[in-house]
Design a protein around this nucleic acid. Structure first.
Length: 261
DNA sequence: CTAGATGTTAAGGT
DNA sequence: CACCTTAACATCTA
């Protein structure tokens, strides 16, 4: 479920596994995930290099392997990384496999093929090209306030706008608004300073807690709404029924009793 | 069989 | 122009 907490977890996972080992091979199982680079070129560029550092902005992951050169990964709606012993069978949906000199392999997994792997320049360059806003964990309250207030539509859409702040997606936006007790369709203009602060504080709190729990919903507190994504579920706070509405074409789950406009 | 599922983006509308 | 919504992408599951 790759939103900010998942991608941050993958970044840390990479740091503790595939870094600083010589890359011996790159095997592309499905070229649909490649963007702007062929399988051949990817292998050629990475061969005998080492991943030296990692960087994340929102849901985008960068792994440096040379001066001003990064392996860029975006997971789309599905995906994860797995580092495993080379003689083991690769996991399901492995789309790109990186082989290292110690015999281990790293799999970029991506069931629905909406993810992307490419070779880019420095992260800052890509961030500017893609017009990504500050990371949700880094953004100042002033920038947050300005960005959200400048939007006309639903506050949830604003939270998910990667050019205002990057990293919040459909699932965590619901969680943040649930804790801030704000109806997801609320117009940003109507938000009081207090309400906006509640959203900001809860955003940081939720994302940090999710990272701590390795972005695994099974480990999330019972007070969260993520495990209750379903119209037959009960609100963990008041016990009322959870409702589903569409916002920007995506499903929003919320508690109509706790979250008023 | 159908609808919906964590993201992004092109295209069309206001 | 700035912003909004929808459809499409590919695959799997309830």
């Amino acid at each position: 479920m790759p939103e900010l907490p998942d991608v941050e977890y993958y970044r840390r996972y990479l740091e503790s596994t595939a870094m600083r080992k010589k890359i011996k091979s790159v095997e592309v199982q499905n070229a649909k995930v490649l963007e702007g680079v062929s399988a051949k070129k990817l292998a050629k560029v990475l061969k005998n290099k080492k991943f030296t550092s990692t960087h994340r902005r929102g849901k985008n992951l960068f792994v440096s392997f040379a001066k001003d050169k990064c392996l860029y990964m975006h997971f789309g709606m599905t995906g994860e990384l797995k580092y495993f012993k080379g003689d083991e069978k690769e996991p399901d949906h492995a789309r790109v496999l990186f082989g290292f000199s110690n015999g281990y392999r790293l799999a970029f997994m991506n069931q629905r093929l909406l993810g992307k792997v490419s070779v880019t320049g420095p992260a800052d360059e890509v961030i500017a090209e893609k017009d990504l806003g500050p990371d949700a964990l880094e953004i100042s309250y002033e920038d947050f306030k300005k960005g959200i207030k400048g939007k006309i539509g639903a506050v949830k859409s604003a939270l998910m706008d990667q050019s205002i702040l990057s990293g919040v997606g459909n699932i965590y936006a619901d969680e943040i608004l649930f804790h801030a007790r704000i109806h997801p369709k609320t117009t940003p203009k109507k938000l009081s300073g207090n309400a906006l602060k509640r959203i900001y504080r809860n955003m940081k709190k939720i994302l940090e807690k999710a990272i701590e729990k390795k972005a695994d919903p099974d480990k999330f507190p019972r007070t969260w709404i993520i495990p209750a994504r379903g119209e037959k579920e009960k609100c963990p706070r008041c016990g009322g029924g959870i409702k589903r509405i569409k916002i920007s074409g995506r499903s929003s789950y919320f508690c109509p009793r706790c979250q008023k406009k």
